[in-house]
Simulated scan of single mutants.
Amino acid sequence: MKTKYSLLLALFALIVISGCVKLSEDPKATLTPGTYFKTQSDLDASVNAMYIQLARDGAWGFTSKETSYFGSDDLTTDPGLNKADMRDFDRLSGNSANQSMLAEWQGPWAAIYQANNVIANYAKVNSTDALKNESAGQCYFVRGLCYYYMVRTFGALPLVLTPISLDARPPRADVASVYASIISDLKTAKSLLSNTPSSGRPTSYSASACLADVYLTMAGH
């Protein structure tokens, strides 16, 4: 019996001692923007993830991107159709309870968040300058485009140009500062993007066209 208790005591001591051993962690499955961007494939996947934020239904995948045009003569809704959200804009009464208005706010921010990660990390990727610049140019273009849509709907906006935590709440910048950032992003995109057409992707011509639209809007047209 004494031997039995001695064995149990020894086993308990072994468990306690082994529980105090410091484990050496090697979190290969943990990815962060600081460790993820290594290859062109990583960069391509991140750029695709940016576009996905806009393609989702409820972001820009449906009609939310058109909210800034409702209330004008450009678009209208049929009272007999199931477009209650859109009728709010026809009546100039869109608010935060409107799901399309909410989607136009959330969708672009998700894309901007992803674009910022690429812009902050693309230079260190092991790839050619041409491919890296093309990836970065797309992100500058999308970020500028997102801000362009939002500033016309919401006015003053938080100007987020670097990666931030998801729970950060930066202050709003005035409209003039937002437009200055839009112009800067589109000019940078124009300098980085190629002229070669690619289905569904912006080129330097896309950036030039968007810049022209921005200037016309700023001039009151």
Rank of each mutant, 00 (worst) to 15 (best):
1 M>E: 08
2 K>S: 14
5 Y>N: 12
7 L>M: 10
8 L>E: 06
9 L>I: 11
9 L>Y: 04
10 A>K: 05
11 L>G: 10
11 L>I: 13
14 L>T: 15
15 I>K: 01
16 V>H: 00
19 G>Y: 01
20 C>F: 13
20 C>T: 09
22 K>Y: 06
25 E>I: 08
30 T>I: 15
32 T>Y: 14
32 T>N: 03
33 P>N: 09
35 T>M: 08
40 Q>C: 01
42 D>K: 03
42 D>V: 05
43 L>P: 01
43 L>H: 11
45 A>V: 09
46 S>Q: 08
47 V>W: 03
49 A>M: 10
50 M>G: 00
54 L>N: 04
58 G>I: 02
60 W>D: 00
60 W>A: 04
62 F>M: 02
63 T>D: 12
65 K>W: 12
66 E>C: 02
66 E>A: 03
66 E>M: 09
66 E>G: 01
66 E>H: 07
66 E>Y: 06
68 S>D: 08
70 F>W: 15
72 S>A: 07
73 D>N: 11
75 L>C: 03
75 L>Q: 01
76 T>G: 07
81 L>H: 07
86 M>C: 03
87 R>L: 06
90 D>A: 00
92 L>E: 13
92 L>V: 11
94 G>K: 00
97 A>Y: 10
97 A>C: 02
97 A>I: 00
98 N>K: 06
99 Q>Y: 08
99 Q>T: 15
100 S>A: 08
100 S>W: 08
100 S>C: 01
103 A>K: 05
104 E>R: 01
108 P>A: 08
108 P>D: 10
108 P>R: 07
110 A>N: 09
112 I>T: 00
113 Y>N: 13
113 Y>V: 00
120 A>W: 05
124 K>M: 06
124 K>G: 02
125 V>D: 12
125 V>H: 01
125 V>W: 03
126 N>G: 07
126 N>F: 10
128 T>W: 06
128 T>I: 11
129 D>Q: 15
130 A>D: 12
132 K>E: 07
133 N>Q: 14
139 C>K: 06
140 Y>M: 04
140 Y>V: 02
141 F>P: 02
143 R>Y: 09
145 L>S: 09
146 C>F: 01
147 Y>H: 11
148 Y>N: 13
149 Y>M: 05
149 Y>Q: 13
158 P>V: 11
160 V>C: 04
161 L>N: 13
163 P>N: 01
164 I>R: 08
166 L>A: 14
167 D>C: 01
169 R>P: 03
171 P>Y: 10
171 P>N: 12
181 S>M: 12
181 S>K: 14
182 I>K: 02
183 I>D: 11
187 K>D: 12
188 T>Q: 15
188 T>K: 15
189 A>R: 02
189 A>H: 01
191 S>C: 09
192 L>Y: 12
192 L>D: 11
194 S>A: 13
194 S>D: 04
194 S>W: 06
195 N>T: 11
196 T>Y: 01
197 P>T: 09
197 P>V: 07
201 R>F: 14
205 Y>V: 13
206 S>D: 15
207 A>Q: 06
208 S>F: 03
209 A>K: 04
209 A>V: 03
212 A>C: 01
214 V>E: 09
214 V>K: 00
214 V>S: 05
216 L>K: 13
218 M>H: 02
219 A>P: 03
219 A>W: 05
219 A>D: 14
219 A>G: 05
221 H>I: 15
221 H>E: 10
221 H>V: 15
